[in-house]
């Protein structure tokens, strides 16, 4: 069964079309990389798959949830999201942020400390997020994915801001996740590391121009 199935989906912001008739099927345990120029609709497609955007036309399901209905809210609990912007509370530490997220979603709180240790933030786990670098904040997001173990990983430019060690760590995390049955969709402007075997989705002007495995 497909992880996501979109049929002629249109998403608009006011009267401006963000996605113009997207038809796409995502298969399980596959890594997809979405490429395209600025404004091609990469982030909008990710947001649609996360249940964060409502289609104004078309139909689709993601993880079995109808994205045209109120099921979008339930869908969000089953996806992992890594965006461009800092997505944590600046005055709280990584541990406090992750504990809040884990308690609200029912994730395993005990997995937080090992995950932060794994991403190299054991020594900075109690420092407020606002004092961490952009790369370290990305690592906190990676730790959250390890704690949450979502079925569908949605990552917007995940390699941005990461140093070489962070990039290696992320690649390892993605390979492990795929092996354990997760489906991964990420956007990228650059080349992916060779260990990431990804199918390609090319977007132009809010449409899917090409899908290549």
């Amino acid at each position: 069964m497909a992880v996501a199935s979109l049929c002629d989906v249109v998403v608009t912001a006011g009267s401006f079309p963000l996605l113009s008739g997207v038809t796409l099927t995502l298969e399980p345990t596959v890594t997809y990389v979405i490429t395209g120029s600025n404004g091609a609709g990469k982030t909008s497609l990710l947001r649609l798959l996360a249940g964060l955007e409502a289609p104004s036309r078309g139909s689709g399901t993601v993880l079995g949830f109808d994205i045209c209905s109120s099921q979008r809210r339930e869908l969000r609990r089953h996806v992992g999201w890594l965006g461009h912007e800092m997505s944590f509370y600046a005055d709280l530490s990584p541990v406090e942020n992750l504990k809040f997220a884990a308690r609200t979603t029912g994730a395993d709180v005990a997995a937080i400390t090992p995950a932060l240790d794994r991403v190299g933030l054991a020594q900075r786990s109690k420092v407020p997020m606002k004092f961490l670098s952009a790369g370290q904040q990305r690592r906190v997001s990676m730790a959250w994915f390890m704690v949450r173990r979502p079925q569908l990983w949605l990552m917007d430019e995940p390699y941005a801001s990461l140093d070489d060690e962070g990039r290696d760590l992320l690649s390892e995390l993605l390979v492990t996740a795929q092996t354990s049955g997760a489906t991964i969709v990420l956007t990228s402007h650059g080349l992916l590391p060779p260990e990431i075997d990804a199918a390609s989705i090319v977007m132009v002007g809010g449409r899917i121009a090409k899908v290549a495995s």
């Binding site: 947001r47 964060l52 809210r73 339930e74 969000r76 999201w81 997505s87 997220a101 609200t104």
Partner: peptide, 17 residues
């Protein structure tokens, strides 16, 4: 303001509370 940035809004939405 605690939840005013786009990133925080999104992450709160993703928690599906």
């Amino acid at each position: 303001q605690l939840e005013s940035s786009r990133g925080t809004v999104t992450s709160i939405q993703i928690l599906g509370m």
